[in-house]
Computed example of a mutant assay.
Amino acid sequence: MDKDMGTRDEPGPCAREMRPHATAFVARVTARNRLPLDYSVASLRVVDFLIDGLRKGGADRERARETLLGLGAYVGEVLVRRAGAVWVDLDADQRGYFAQPVGVRMPDGRVWNPLGKVRNRFDTGGPEESLRTFYLTLHGRSRRVVA
C-alpha cells in the first residue's frame, strides 16, 4: 500500500465527491491547455510532468494544494475507470495510515492512496514516485475497462 507521509489537518473530500472533482479538474485544466487528460494509463505520464512542473516552478505544498488534490482525484479516477477500482471513504485506521480521507479499493480488496501518491511525487520528485509506474505495478487491478 502507498502511504503519504504528510499530516492531515482538515477532513477533506468524501468518496462520492471524487469523480465529480476529477471531472471538474480536467475540464478546468484542459480548457486553458491542450493537455491529454483522457483517463488513459498513458495520461499518467502527463500527471508526472505536471507535478514536476509545479516543483520546478517553486510551488510549495500549500500553494499547490488544490492542484495536487485535483491531480490525485484524476489518478484515482484512472484507477476506477481502467483498473476496476471504486472510491471509498477510509476508516479511522486507514485515515491514520494514509493521512487521507479517501482512497480506492481494488477488485481484490486492496486499498490504495492516489491522493497521497500524488503528494509523494510532489514532495520527492523522484522517478520511484511516478504515477504511471504506480499504475503499471499496481496489485489487484482488473483487466477490464470501466467507463
Rank of each mutant, 00 (worst) to 15 (best):
G72I: 06
M106Q: 08
R45P: 09
V118N: 00
F49T: 14
P20D: 03
L54N: 02
Q94V: 08
G58V: 13
T67G: 09
G72S: 09
Y39Q: 10
V41K: 06
Y74V: 09
G53S: 04
V102Q: 04
Q100H: 04
R28I: 13
G70Q: 05
L50E: 15
R119Y: 08
H21D: 14
D48W: 08
R121E: 01
G116P: 07
K117F: 11
K117D: 13
L44G: 09
G70H: 07
R16P: 02
V80N: 09
R28H: 13
G72K: 09
W87A: 04
E66S: 12
D108C: 13
L44N: 08
F25S: 12
M5G: 14
G96I: 08
N33L: 11
H21K: 04
F98P: 03
R63K: 11
D93I: 04
E62D: 15
N120K: 00
R95D: 14
V118A: 05
R110D: 08
D123V: 03
D9Y: 12
G103Y: 07
W112R: 03
G116F: 02
V118K: 06
R63Q: 12
V102K: 01
G76Y: 04
G109W: 10
F49G: 13
P101L: 12
V118I: 08
M5K: 06
R34I: 02
V102W: 01
V102L: 00
R16Y: 11
L90R: 02
A24L: 05
V86L: 13
L44M: 06
M106S: 00
A64V: 14
A31Q: 02
R28K: 04
M5Q: 11
L68Y: 04
V86S: 10
V47F: 00
M18G: 01
V75H: 03
T30A: 06
D9V: 14
G84H: 05
P101Y: 12
R28T: 15
R95Q: 13
R61N: 08
G57V: 14
V78D: 03
T124Y: 15
V47A: 09
P107G: 05
R28C: 14
P114M: 00
V111T: 12
A83D: 10
V88Q: 01
L68C: 06
D38W: 01
V78E: 06
A85S: 09
D52E: 13
T30F: 07
R95E: 15
R16I: 13
T30N: 02
L68A: 04
E66M: 07
A73W: 00
D2H: 08
R32H: 10
A92R: 00
L115C: 05
T30V: 08
V111I: 15
G58I: 14
A24V: 15
V86C: 11
